[in-house]
Structure formats: C-alpha cells, structure tokens
Amino acid sequence: MTTGEELRRYERQMIIEGFGREGQERLKQTRVVVAGAGGLGSVVSIYLTVAGVGKIRLIDHDRVELGNLNRQILYGNRDIGRRKVDSAKEKLESLNPEVKVEIVSEAILEDNAFELVDDCDLIVDAMDNFTTRYILNKVAINRDIPFFHGAVRGFEGRATTIIPGQTACLKCLYTRAPQPEPAPVVGVAPAVIGSIQATEVVKYIVGIGDLLTNRLLIYDGLSLEFMEMKLKRRPDCEECQHLTEGRE
C-alpha cells in the first residue's frame, strides 16, 4: 500500500486524470530493467526513480570517465574512475529512497541476457550499440516482455515501444549492427529521448494514453522537428515471426 509519505511525494502525479493511487500502486509493483547507464540510462533511471517505480535493475559494466560527463547526468567529477552502477545507485537512492535499485556490473551477452532480465516486467533499451540491442530484443520477444527502444546521435534521436507479438520488433525495423564507434552526442539528445522512453514506461504501467507502438519517433534537435514513421511487423522477421498475434 502507498504510505502517507508516498502520498505526499507523488501527489502531483496522482492528481493526473487516470493516474490516481491505483496508478501509483502499479508503478510501485513494477520491476524495470534499465540496460545501460550512459546518456539514455541516466535520464530513464532518474525519471523512473522519481516517479516511484518499485524496482530498477540497472545494468552496465563501464566505469565513469571524464568524457562521459557531457551527457551522462547520473555522474559528476568525483565519480570518475568508479563503477557506473555504484555511483548511479547512490544518486538514485538519494533521489528516492523508496525505490529499490539493483545493480549489475556485467556486459550483456547472449549467454547471460535471459538471466539478467529474470523476474522483470519491462526492459528499457539504453544501450550504445545494436549488437546488444538485438540480444535484448530477442530476450524481450522470447520472454514476452515489453521493450522500450531509444537511440541517439549528435542532436538526434529515435524511440519506439515494442510489445512482443503485437508490434514490429527491433529486427522488423533494422537489420544491421555496425561496429560501435565513438559517435557525436550532445547531452540534450539523450535528455529528450530518455524522457520519452520514461514517459512510455510510466504510461504503459499506469495504463493511460497512447503508446509509441508501431511508430518510430524521429527527433532532430537541429531543425527542432519530430517526424514519425509507421512500422509494420516483418512476416519473415527472424526474431518475432513465430508470434502470430497482431500479424498482418
């Protein structure tokens, strides 16, 4: 049950039409994996924490570097050299001690991915490469877990919400996985896209609004423009073709 302190902490969101105590209670009961604690993962985990999601499992095997600090707002100068997840846990718990923050300092690989998402209700893609995104996509499809995709570059970003069996998955949309290389990113790009991913997660859990399903949101900060592209499931998708629901 939501306590008196929680009622005060969350009152401004619970008065949103359709949210209420029930929505807050649903947030509290939800366990979310945030895969990646970089630019996107910083923003997503901060907003899910302050919104009162019950448990966040943050996965990242990197340490904080000076070059991260233009965009990874979970960290500051004093965190340089520390494991990202350790600094992140401290920061998130200071923002909201009600939220359980579980940390995993491991790389996400084919071998461990299923285990890493065990007991979780939702997965947020805050990765920086498509090889790992495809692993997470596979796990989400096979475990029937909603998957919230985001990616950024420069002033740009993309986001879509994937509901296995109902919507296009990441492999329906993309087929390539270029080698990761340091790409340009300005902090405000993951700020926009991470906030959109967190918005989708909160809406999905509370059960209000329309989701970014079968739609790729295309954000360009330089022209300050949002475009959308309608997505369709690929009947020959190597990942999701075996799921029959919602296919054309």
Partner: peptide, 8 residues
C-alpha cells in the same frame, strides 16, 4: 531516408 542512429 534517415540517418542511422545507434548511440546511447
């Protein structure tokens, strides 16, 4: 026609 975006 879009640019390819992969960072996080």
């Amino acid at each position: 026609i879009l640019t390819f975006v992969a960072e996080g």
